[in-house]
């Protein structure tokens, strides 16, 4: 029986516990999940394969989430146009604005509840399909 291909999500976060938490939630909801530890690794993965969504943390070593988004959006489609969901512990309006300017499609303040993560992931990845 043919099934619709699973949406592919790339989770970029420097904490392995956080990656595990997001991955488990997304996999339960039927997404195929890949992980990266920082912006540089995230860009490499995005250039290697097609993703329907990238979920990216802001505060990371090597390359932070805002720099990552700016770099990503400077690239040609389809890589450069992948929807991006930003997750961050920073809740200030200026932080959200910085993420929006860099190319974020949506911004969730941590702690991110499983239901919120899945609902926003489905919405953003669905918009891509």
């Amino acid at each position: 029986m043919a099934e619709a291909p699973m949406s592919r999500v790339l989770v970029i976060d420097d904490s392995s516990l956080v990656r595990r938490y997001y991955r488990a939630a997304l996999e339960r909801a039927g997404f195929a999940v890949e992980e990266a530890l920082n912006g540089i690794e995230g860009l490499e993965k995005l250039l290697e394969g097609r993703f329907d969504l990238v979920i990216v943390d802001v505060n990371m070593p090597k390359m932070d989430g805002i720099t990552f988004l700016s770099d990503l959006r400077a690239r040609a489609a389809p890589t450069g146009s992948v929807p991006a969901l930003v997750t961050s512990t920073e809740a200030g309006p200026q932080d959200k604005e910085a993420a929006r300017r860099a190319g974020a499609n949506f911004y969730l303040v941590k702690p991110v509840a499983e239901a919120d993560l899945v609902a926003h992931a489905a919405l953003l990845a669905g918009a891509r399909a």
Partner: peptide
């Protein structure tokens, strides 16, 4: 401890554990 935090602590993604 890692499993317990993932399963039982809603703020697991808020702090750098």
């Amino acid at each position: 401890i890692a499993i317990w935090l993932l399963e039982n602590w809603p703020k697991v993604d808020v702090y750098d554990i």
